[in-house]
């Protein structure tokens, strides 16, 4: 039932984008998002869309799969667009109660919606092509200098990768407990909001207990393998920039500069 959410999931396949160093993808996503906010005209947006389309094509992730994940944010997107349309001051087209539709509003709303869609697609493209482990590895390496300031970078990265790893497990567990309680006649759908909240107790209590049990087991397993944090720890697959990664940085910078230049003409 909850399996339809694709945001934040990894799509297993082999592509140029999948093979890139996670740091490139992290930096790329950030640069792309910054670019999106610097762009102010339709040509800039078109260029940004084209760039993203090219990366999607290279990544071999089916477009339908990416768009399916967008359904979840459709509501948010709708609200943003409507509010921008009616609440931006400018040349009015027509008025209704306290709302006034303006030309400027339509323009802002369209750009805003467009920007949001690109933003979310680019961010989900990163998670679709990078496993959570690679992602945290990339972050850990990129943030390494902060270690000198006393920030426990490795520990934070470890916590992140553990929590990411637990999301599918907990989803599965929720599904299982839900079914078990439905088999005992529980009803999660009907009733008013208070009844619905009450109906969650038989789901949440076992879920919490199982989360604690799993956390406990994991801690035990880590301790019995003498895990003791980041100091002096080496990696089996250390991250090293390859030629493709350096080229990717180059393309990325070129793309960002051109798009911002065109987008601010």
């Amino acid at each position: 039932m909850i399996r339809d959410i694709t945001i934040g999931q990894y799509y297993q396949t082999d592509s140029v984008i999948h093979r890139l160093d996670p740091r490139v993808k992290l930096a790329g996503t950030i640069i792309y998002i910054v670019t999106l906010f610097l762009v102010g005209n339709i040509w800039g947006y078109l260029l940004a869309t084209l760039g993203l389309a090219a990366v999607i094509k290279l990544s071999k992730v089916p477009l339908g799969y990416i768009l399916r994940g967008m359904k979840a944010i459709g509501f948010l997107l709708g609200i943003t667009v409507v509010f921008n349309m009616f609440l931006t001051p400018g040349t009015p087209i027509f008025s209704f109660w306290i709302f006034t539709l303006t030309w400027e509003g339509i323009r802002t709303a369209l750009f805003m919606g467009w920007r949001l869609i690109l933003l979310i697609i680019s961010a989900s493209l990163m998670t679709l092509t990078t496993t959570p482990n690679q992602l945290t590895d990339g972050m850990e390496k990129a943030l390494k200098p902060l270690n000198k300031l006393g920030v426990p970078v490795h520990e934070i990265a470890m916590m992140m990768s553990i929590s990411l790893r637990f999301i599918p497990i907990l989803l599965e567990e929720t599904d299982k407990i839900m079914k078990a309680q439905i088999a005992r006649g529980a009803d999660f759908e009907s009733g008013n909001i208070i009844e619905k909240a009450k109906a969650m107790v038989p789901l949440l209590v076992p879920l919490f207990i199982s989360a604690f049990r799993r956390a406990n087991d994991l801690a035990m397993a880590m301790e019995s393998r003498c895990y003791r944090g980041g100091e002096g720890r080496t990696k089996m697959k250390p991250l090293i920039y390859k030629k493709a990664d350096k080229l990717a940085y180059l393309y990325l910078l070129g793309f960002a500069v051109i798009t911002v230049f065109v987008g601010r003409l």
Partner: peptide, 11 residues
């Protein structure tokens, strides 16, 4: 229907 590890559903 008694699921696998049914004790995990106790609450």
């Amino acid at each position: 229907l008694v699921f696998q590890y049914p004790e995990h559903q106790l609450f």
